[in-house]
Nucleic acid binder design. Sequence first.
DNA 1: GCAATACTTAGAAAAATATCTAAATATCTA
DNA 2: TAGATATTTAGATATTTTTCTAAGTATTGC
Lengths: 94, 94
Amino acid sequence: MKQQEVFKAMADPTRRAILKRLQGGSLTAGEIGEAFDITPASLSHHFAVLKHADLVRTERRGQYIVYSLNSTVFEDLARMLMDLFPAKGKAGGK
Amino acid sequence: MKQQEVFKAMADPTRRAILKRLQGGSLTAGEIGEAFDITPASLSHHFAVLKHADLVRTERRGQYIVYSLNSTVFEDLARMLMDLFPAKGKAGGK
DNA sequence: GCAATACTTAGAAAAATATCTAAATATCTA
DNA sequence: TAGATATTTAGATATTTTTCTAAGTATTGC
């Protein structure tokens, strides 16, 4: 996991909202964009950041591009966080 | 939890390194600073961001100011992430 | 092939962030 | 109280990020 890229990606509220929209399942770029008051170009930039962080996956379907969540990275991130703070009850910790 | 503040705080590598240093226990601002090639003023700015996100707690001890982790927020953040991605195995999810 | 649709890339402007120097505040100790 | 140490605040500058407009690429359907 590229930690820096992932955290940077998560730091923007628009991007977090995009991820949230994808919770329900895959959507095309256009479908995602409907929810935001932002140009397609700006949206595309956000997609690029999310993709670079490997938080989303893409697949072309005809003239559409379909985005979906990459749950794996979320799991890694959550694990990383759990690792970052000292376990209070348990002995664990890397 | 102020989600936006927390994510923004975590997005900077220096701040994540500060948090990491605090895993071992409380440290004074100066002790933390030893590890970084950055002025006390800049460091202080990072402390302010971390404090604002409630990721660290402070306590004055004489002329020193002692910083320590606030594990609670890390737990909240980890939970939030688990919530953000669709549970694959379990049925859960808010 | 040509026009329409969906999306991305390039380049510029605006806004936010990180860093610095200088000065201020708080506390200790002589 | 004065001087030294620890840290923060203020204000300026440099860098990064977000957003936009305009132009480019890919695909569909006539």
